[in-house]
Design a protein around this nucleic acid. Sequence first.
DNA 1: GCTCTCTGCGCAAACGTTTGTTCGGTTACA
DNA 2: TGTAACCGAACAAACGTTTGCGCAGAGAGC
Lengths: 338, 338
Amino acid sequence: MGSHATLQVIADETGVTPSTVSRILNSSSEASARRWASAETIQRVRKSAASHGYRPNPQAVGLRTRRSNLIGVIVPRLQDYVLATIYEGIDEAATERGFATFVTNSLDNPRKQALATETLLSRRVEGLIFGDAHFDGEFLKGIAERDVKFVLVSRRVRDDHPSVTCDDHMGGRLVGEHLVATGRRDVAILAGETYASTGLDRTQGAVDALHAAGVDIPPHRILHDAFDAQGGRAAAERLLARRPLPDAIFATNDFAAIGAMGALRDRGLSVPGDIALVGYNDTALAAELPTPLTTVRSPMREIGRRGLELLLDLLRGVEAQSLRLPPTLVVRESTNPV
Amino acid sequence: MGSHATLQVIADETGVTPSTVSRILNSSSEASARRWASAETIQRVRKSAASHGYRPNPQAVGLRTRRSNLIGVIVPRLQDYVLATIYEGIDEAATERGFATFVTNSLDNPRKQALATETLLSRRVEGLIFGDAHFDGEFLKGIAERDVKFVLVSRRVRDDHPSVTCDDHMGGRLVGEHLVATGRRDVAILAGETYASTGLDRTQGAVDALHAAGVDIPPHRILHDAFDAQGGRAAAERLLARRPLPDAIFATNDFAAIGAMGALRDRGLSVPGDIALVGYNDTALAAELPTPLTTVRSPMREIGRRGLELLLDLLRGVEAQSLRLPPTLVVRESTNPV
DNA sequence: GCTCTCTGCGCAAACGTTTGTTCGGTTACA
DNA sequence: TGTAACCGAACAAACGTTTGCGCAGAGAGC
């Protein structure tokens, strides 16, 4: 494939040594290059390099400098719109800074998490970004002890590891406040998987807001299931199988909300007539649904970008401060007051 | 980060040279290793390597062997469920074969396509997989001339380049036949972007099937727009603004179908009562929608896997044969006969 | 006229592998 | 017993960079 020029060929062509070419090409400005060569030589070398479309061989550079400029990213599943978007943010920021990324799915499976981590490490990534942290998991402790650099995105954990998340508790509060404000009193929550801080925090936020308004949510109104359409439908079906029915459902994920919408329709219940419905993330779909979905907009792409930046700070030895970005409520038809 | 052992430390520990360690570790079987060392030495070396968790440094290996075991993947957008799934297939197959992949979004923007290609090439990928080919584009011609190895997935192009696609024409035919069989006669098609073979072939397939049944689709019933919910809604709105209304809409993408559903509801039209609706890809959402969506299941993950395998064939110098995998129709409520 | 300090570059080593060649010592064979 | 063959391993070079050090020549300062 595409034959790549080396320092040697440029050196030969310009009558200098590879060292000199390297120094010139690695100096950003003309001025700093003058430290190493005459203006005339710089000209010649730069021109020759450009004409060959010279690009340093990353493997050689990596070998010599012991830096790979590689970052590893592990997510539950790239198919998931939310994590795909976060990853887009990561990759975008990484590219801007001259880093490249490897992504892998872990499916939230501990064995795959460990395997993926080892694979990435063996590829000599300089740091890792986990989008699949389990709130009470032991896995990260072991990683930290091995002195591996990493940050968390999307989810946080009980132990104190640097993370960039949406302020999910606040997001949940916004939803809770909105629901009481629109006259709902019996709220059920589809809380997602038990190990994901996202769902847990959103749930707690809603519970807190409702409590402050004098509404208490009993435990049986909080259902855990997968963060997708199927999980949402399944949870909603369990919920709707018993009386009394709630007058609102907060699905802590847009796709779960869509699944719930299907379950509601199956039982002849209308949204928002019989039951209000709220999602989370303001997915591209939310606004376009037959019944546009009230949801919480979270800065997914920004979470990714900041996550990468945080990791890079960490690699530079800078103190890494966890970040919690604020969400905003997006009100649509699915929570219209009756 | 994690200190990695080198051949040298294993050599020192076992009293041999790095060469010998390398040969032993690179022989798969005990038998083939005996070519290079005594059974006793092999034992010692293997044990030492294992105890250090030795993993060859990919940069050093790459430098020496001139092989990176890296594959570049360019997709329109990873946020898109379909391409994310295809990429999952690619990465899965790549990992199984000891390759790693870099993915990037091109947003179907020619400048970004070119830029991403150069970036990946400068990272020394051994081959490329394009998921964003433009049917009549000139870009790939230039790439091929530079002797870069690549394959296409999801979309094919007019020029003959190796590709792995869904048999989209067949998919379209299945839809066309189903629609006439369920009594629809005036079918509109949301055909996606004009440069994507997926939408074009699906459209043509449907047109052909309907024609065979004596139904002809006039050009104004074929609308082009983005392959997502917003595009689907926009196209549907243009469609519904004029009389007479069609009695069926074939959205060549599930998300576009969801957008169309929204537009239909806005006008008080029911699915399938007033208008039948068909999607494409059998996205995870299709079955869980309030009105479950009739759609065409395409083997997305398999397309990714086969794409990678095809590329690897190409790299080995094997004759590369384009592949067209068959889809299947999945009938749901959205096309119930009136 | 002597040393001193720049300027502009070359030299060489090193990063961790892989792989062709060499080499000393046994063993087999005639 | 001399020679050929083989076994088990070492040696060395190379992949493309980066970077500490050295060095020749020119100009400056005394």
